[in-house]
Amino acid sequence: MNDDRAVAALAGEIETALQKPVFFSEILAAFKDRPYRTILRAWSDVRSRRPLARDVHGRYWLDDSKESSKH
């Protein structure tokens, strides 16, 4: 799988993981078999196209209905 396809596939998996609140460290732990840079590139893609909500503890989740993170 080339880099771009690996990033796109991982971005989809991260979006699935973000169906519930998770710390960033949990994302890293869940995909620890993937290259660190690939995770960051996939994270960048997720953040660029989907609004991420945060809770008071700093956990992330996808919440398209409520855009708590304006940017």
Partner: peptide, 17 residues
Amino acid sequence: DLTALPIPFMHEKDGGP
């Protein structure tokens, strides 16, 4: 591309690298 830099993830509850 900032992902070209080895920006570390540092503490358990950090919001990112």
